[in-house]
């Protein structure tokens, strides 16, 4: 396999999305520097690193979620289908439709389970009739492995579900608008171990259709769930940077960088 960290091909269609020379600032503070990362389609990549290393900031850069922070700005490029998503003519709402996101804490709307899934599709221009919307809701809930648990109470509030079910509902909401990429920011860290494993099983299923980037503090989760792992650290100026990117099997058994070794064996971080 090519060492993706060193390959620079403008708009390479082998990649679902890629960051090139990415720097992210909060005001004058450089939070992330020099990130070059490529993600192949329908693969799961874990982003790991100590607190404050910028991994969530990097993740949010892939669908311009950092735009919502007034002082945040990105330099460099994030290429999606060969187009830099930070170009002026790109609509961030459209970016977020095609690059979906699942957050750490399940955040269903205070609406019915059905509406939680249907709403996103509707505002993103879903034109189907009621039967077609029903079908989309069912398919999305099925794909998110939560259908059997909610099919008899679709009109109940999404907030009535357990934490794990809420998170799967949020995943259903994300996939209802058919993104190409799903960003997950610690999607299981607020859940109990059984719910966590259900989410992890689900992620493996979703991989068949989506490219998944997952930020996790849980090293075992990264090792279990991903095919590639990117390890970030921060420098003396507290700017996050990419230390090592490799196949997960390789990175967790024989990391090339001593910092990675120290981190994954629990000697620092």
């Amino acid at each position: 396999m090519t060492n993706s960290t060193t390959q620079h091909t403008n708009g390479n269609t082998d990649y679902a999305i890629e960051a090139k020379d990415l720097h992210i600032y909060y005001g004058n503070f450089r939070a992330v520097k020099d990130v070059d990362l490529q993600f192949r389609p329908r693969q799961i990549t874990a982003l790991i690193g100590p607190s404050g290393c910028g991994k969530s900031t990097v993740l949010r850069a892939f669908n311009r979620m950092n735009d919502l922070i007034p002082v945040a700005r990105a330099e460099g490029e994030i290429l999606f289908h060969g187009k830099n998503i930070y170009d002026e003519d790109v609509d961030p709402v459209e970016v977020r439709r095609r690059v979906g996101m699942v957050f750490q804490k399940p955040n269903p709307f205070p609406k019915s389970i059905y509406e939680n899934v249907a709403w996103g599709a509707r505002i993103n221009g879903f034109k189907g009739n009621k039967a077609e919307m029903d079908a989309l809701v069912e398919e999305s809930l099925r794909d998110a492995a939560v259908w059997d648990e909610v099919k008899d109470k679709l009109d109940q509030s999404g907030l009535s579900l357990s934490g794990g079910q809420q998170q799967r509902l949020c995943i259903a909401r994300t996939i209802a608008i058919r993104p190409e990429i799903i960003l997950m920011d610690e999607p299981a860290s607020a859940l109990d171990p059984i719910s966590t494993l259900r989410i992890e099983e689900l992620i493996q299923e979703l991989k068949k259709n989506y490219t998944i980037l997952i930020v996790t503090h849980n090293m075992q989760q990264a090792a279990r769930d991903s095919e590639f792992t990117a390890f970030f650290n921060m420098d003396e100026d507290r700017a996050g940077y990419l230390v090592e990117f490799d196949k997960t099997n390789e990175l967790f058994t024989n990391p090339k960088n001593e910092l990675t070794e120290q981190y994954i064996t629990g000697r620092f971080g």
Binding site: M219, Q220, F252, T253, T265, G266
Partner: peptide, 9 residues
């Protein structure tokens, strides 16, 4: 201990 890398080896 869920050993990784050098420890696991």
């Amino acid at each position: 201990q869920q050993p990784m890398a050098r420890d696991m080896r």
